[in-house]
Structures are given as structure tokens and as C-alpha cells.
Nucleic acid binder design. Structure first.
Length: 171
DNA sequence: CCCTGATTCGC
DNA sequence: GCGAATCAGG
């Protein structure tokens, strides 16, 4: 039901440029149709900032394929922004090299049941985002990041198993 | 297929 | 007034 509070929140989020479906998620308990309907009844249709379907503007300079950028170089200079940019370019090169689906820079608003939730960067810092690549239903990460997430544990288990075998041989 | 807002109309 | 169904489009 549309309480005064929820209407206010609707107005606020709508004014901020969130799409109807995004507003619906924030409010909870309503569909995007409900939001659109309410927006019209309130006479809020026709925004100054129409929401864009998050167009992927990625010029992607194709000049860095060969020269592998080195994050450590930037880090040594203490330049955080350059370090961040270098890390991103390294990721881009890695992605291109291995023919992976590019990272989708998901935000908390973009995440769904089938987007990879592998965090990239420091939470709270400007550049922070999630991987956002495709993930199977029920799986928190894409195949690449699932490997990163679970392989160490696997290796640990294997190490454990090997130690057990060795101990058994000794005794 | 994902998404966007707009409109209609039974409730 | 409400919002699901539907439409028209990106």
C-alpha cells in the first residue's frame, strides 16, 4: 500500500533517475508496473533525467594488447588512481588474452540472481564494483571467479589429504 | 533475452 | 486508486 513514506521515497528515487524496476526493488513488495502506475497518478511522468538502460560505453583503447601494464609500477609511485587504472588495464588484457566475457562493473543495484558477485576494489572507495559477469542460477560467482573462490580451499583439502597419507606411511 | 516507460481497464 | 497485462520500443 502507498503510505506517505513510501510515496515520498518513490518521489525521491524517481527524481534521482532510478528506473521503475529499480525503484520497485528499493521499495519492495511492489512491481515496476505498480511504480509506473503510481508515477503517472502522481503526475511525475516525463523526467528531466530519463533513465538510460545503462549503455555500455567502452571505447576500449586497443593499443595496449602487447605492453602488459604493471600495477606495481604505479603502486610504487603511490598514485592510487593510476594504480587502479593499471589494474583495470591488466584485467582487460587478461580478459582479452583468455577470451573471457568482459567484467560488467555491476553495482549493488545491478546485481541479480545470475550475476557474479565477486567484489572488485575496496568497498566504499569510488571505483568499487562487482564482477557482474554471468553466473548460473544459484551460483554466486562466474566460472572464473568460482575457480578463484573455491580452488584455494580445494588445494588446502588436497594438502591435508596428502599429509594424512604421508603420516600413515611413517607410522 | 535483457531492459525501458506508456496505456488500458477490471478490480 | 491500484496494478497486471499489454504495447511499443532500446
Amino acid at each position: 500500500m502507498w503510505t506517505d513514506e513510501r510515496v515520498e521515497l518513490l518521489k525521491k528515487l524517481w527524481a534521482e533517475g532510478l528506473s521503475a524496476s529499480q525503484v520497485a526493488k528499493q521499495l519492495g513488495g511492489v512491481t515496476r508496473n505498480a511504480v509506473i502506475g503510481k508515477v503517472h497518478r502522481l503526475g511525475l511522468s516525463g523526467r528531466a533525467t530519463p533513465s538510460r538502460p545503462a549503455r555500455s560505453r567502452a571505447p576500449a583503447p586497443r593499443t595496449l594488447v602487447r605492453g602488459r601494464p604493471d600495477p606495481l609500477t604505479a603502486e610504487a609511485r603511490g598514485d592510487e588512481r593510476q594504480r587502479e587504472a593499471a589494474a583495470e588495464r591488466a584485467e582487460a588484457a587478461h580478459v582479452e588474452e583468455r577470451g573471457l566475457e568482459p567484467i560488467q562493473r555491476a553495482t549493488v543495484l545491478t546485481l541479480t540472481e545470475h550475476t557474479c558477485k565477486w567484489p572488485i576494489g575496496d568497498p566504499g572507495r569510488p571505483g568499487f564494483h562487482f564482477c557482474g559477469r554471468g553466473a548460473e542460477h544459484g551460483a554466486p560467482y562466474c566460472t572464473e571467479h568460482a575457480r578463484m573462490a573455491y580452488q584455494p580451499a580445494q588445494a588446502r583439502r588436497n594438502r591435508e589429504r596428502d599429509r594424512m597419507r604421508r603420516d600413515r606411511l611413517v607410522s
